[in-house]
Design a protein around this nucleic acid. Sequence first.
DNA 1: GGGCCTCGAGATCC
DNA 2: CTCGAGGCCC
Length: 722
Amino acid sequence: MTLRDGVPTEAAQRHRELSERIDEGNYRYYVLDQPTLTDAEYDRMMRELRELEERHPQLVTPDSPTQKVGSPITTDFATVEHLERMQSLDNAMSEDELLAWDERVVKEVGEVAGYLCELKIDGLAIAVTYEKGRLVRGITRGDGRTGEDVTNNIRTIADIPSRLAGEGWPDVLEVRGEVFLPIEGFEQVNAAQVEAGKDPFANPRNAAAGSLRQKDPRVTAHRPLGMLVHGFGAWEGGTRPDSQSGAYELMRGWGLPVSDRYEVVGGLDAVRAYVERYGEHRHDPAYEIDGVVVKVDQFALQRRLGSTSRAPRWAIAWKYPPEEVNTKLLDIKVGVGRTGRVTPYGVMAPIQVAGSTVERATLHNASEVRRKGVLIGDTVVLRKAGDVIPEIVAPVTALRDGSEREFEMPEHCPECGTELAYEKEGDADIRCPNARLCPAQLRERLYFVASRNALDIEALGYVGATALTQPLEPSDPPVKNEGDLFHLTVERLLPIKSAVLDAKTGTAKTDPKTGEPKIVTFFANKEGEPKKTVEILFEELEKAKKQPLWRVLVALSIRHVGPAAAQDLARELRSMEAIQSATEEELAAVDGVGPTIAAAIRAWFEVDWHREIVDKWRDAGVRMEDEGAAGPRPLAGVSVVITGSLEGFSRDSATAAVQNLGGKVSGSVSKKTGFVVVGDNPGSKYDKAVKLGVPVLGEEGFRVLLADGPDAAKNVTLRADE
DNA sequence: GGGCCTCGAGATCC
DNA sequence: CTCGAGGCCC
């Protein structure tokens, strides 16, 4: 008898088998309302499982069915990492932009034989992972790197098989697709909502999003959600197809839902025809679409085109022109952002457009207001750009009656009264220069520190940031700037009183009876004890201290330093210390960092109270260097150009590999280039390397470069005649 | 920017 | 049960 942890393997195997069948039975019973086991069968299996566990207590794990009987199946929304990054798509809003995309593609890889056109469904992107053909996880898109685990809700979607059919599927397959509610299903669900005395949903997309975020999968199961595949992430094992359409057909064969409306066409004209056809027949599909996605079909070409920090270069989303409506511009107000920028925004009579009610829209800056020529009191044309962000297009001048008035940019900060100023001649944005003390900037910066793009501190939102930086009581705020965030104590939090803010407008609410402003103790309950949020806040702060350096950098609100630049800086310089002490030239030498960013960083560190923020965070234990900060950098000062497609690397992973060793990846070959790495289908860069006498590496040589450094790599270069 | 869900806290009902 | 706050989707 074979033993594992003292348990016979047959027993362990039987235990696994029973657990699986019981879990499946529970799921069908509780969630799908379609029991497949009789009560007797269920009881018998449960009894056998208990007996097994009595004999072998090692088998009792928290996820054993014996441990969770009676507890309903729920979705826990845990944050999990995607196997591969989920990128978004660049948009083309006009013929010109579509043409420009095509030209760039052709310039990089030559004429493209196949463009895959598909409908862009207005739903939510998800990643569904199959291991050995079994559905193991469903994750929302999230920020592209991590998303929320919605597996139990995904399992209720009829289109999504729990096991792959056929054979030949990879060991691990991460299917990407769009979850949506078909129009008919939407109407059905809304009828049911109204029947049940609940408000109907505003539009199918939001209804689908809400359905996926149900804690109880039984609710999700009653929403007729659909799904259509639009790609894949991880693909481990099995035979990899060589094109997008090839992948689709394989996946279709495995029982995955693939649209039959996609087409591979031969050139830009045919792409235009596809776009036009569905523009005219937009309502033919059973679901809402907001555009067309065009992809370079061949994977070899996709790899050569690579991606920018946010989107692949081998795909583009054509967006159909947005719906436009008229409404009244009631007022133009201004807000102050985290960098002091003063932004005018329009307040309009609420109006339905593209599935939601709109009453506010940013106007960006004073010259934008002038350029559009809108007056307060105008009837304006409104649309949602990309069907998301409301945009005032233009005034309807014919409807003016003379009562309209021009908007005037305030001369003083609406929150701190400081005189506003342009930083440089010709700036579009006017700013409040009082960065250190302006309450609006403090609040906005603190809110930003906690945001998903920066340190991602859950439990600290807009209202919390307001309460910490400008409480009604005490007069001495616990957070005078973001430096204080990690030195908070419960004692400082308890006395805080803050106004209740309207979620929509951010203005203080008043008690409808007395007319007095509503005031609450934000962190203490009635008894004066800490609310649950306090505990969560401190846990989140501890987590935030462990965030990677680039997130800390982003959180500092240095002008021009967003996630992309911060990651470049962190990768190359690896510690706050190094970034702080680098000269402007050294900063500008970082791949992805130009003179503007370099100057902004230097200027930021010149300011005493800025450096104090960093010091305070460091004292509190916030991470100030990335792992491997002291690691070897054998490629420091070496610039590498990668061309053609490599077998074992994606464009991104090859780039990351070079950068992690301190090297620089550049797009064009020059005399200063250290190495040119060529894969299959190398372009003109290979010829240029030969002409300039730059060492050329094949994939094997590239591996030598990464493993053994530049000197070793020089011995394995390809000769020009190879 | 707006719509949705969840959760905690407090009010309200019985 | 209702409301406020936060998070997440596009």
